[in-house]
């Protein structure tokens, strides 16, 4: 009986092995795809309403991804490739706006606002406390 089970197991197992192949990555260079993915997630698809180059099915997005692949294989650095795209489409393609004069308020404004807010709150709280002498309210 035991032998039979083993036999059946071996048979079904062999059967499974014979038919089931290991799924292969769609690309022959998965490492490059990972790099492409990371990069294209920060780039904007130009023809779409608002989506990244990574997530777009638009033909131009496909072309640009292929262009990026080609340049990556040619040994270009990420920065060089982004510069290449910016030279053609402008800063519009970058979802991470570069830090420069135009975007200074964008990048630093929020933190300035937080500091100002904190400072103003402190001043107002001082005023609210007035002369102090406050007892905690027990719960």
């Amino acid at each position: 009986m035991k032998k039979l089970i083993i036999l059946i197991f071996l048979f079904t197992h062999a059967f499974a092995v014979a038919y089931a192949g290991e799924a292969k990555p769609i690309s022959d260079d998965p490492a490059l795809e990972v790099r492409l993915k990371a990069m294209s997630q920060e780039l904007r698809c130009l023809v779409c309403q608002n989506s990244t180059l990574a997530d777009s099915d638009a033909p131009l997005a496909e072309d640009l991804r292929n262009e990026i692949r080609t340049q990556m294989r040619a040994g270009k650095s990420d920065q060089e490739i982004v510069d290449y795209l910016v030279a053609r489409y402008g800063d519009f393609v970058r979802y991470r706006p570069p830090m420069n004069n135009v975007t200074a308020i964008l990048w630093f404004g929020p933190f300035l606002l937080l500091l100002t807010g904190g400072f103003v709150l402190y001043r107002v709280l001082k005023k609210q406390a007035r002369d102090g002498d406050i007892q905690a309210e027990e719960e």
């Binding site: 130009l46 023809v47 072309d63 262009e67 053609r88």
Partner: peptide, 13 residues
């Protein structure tokens, strides 16, 4: 045919 010149000129629409 392959849109390469288009990419060089920044054609998007």
């Amino acid at each position: 045919t392959d849109g390469k010149i288009g990419i060089d000129y920044g054609v998007y629409g």
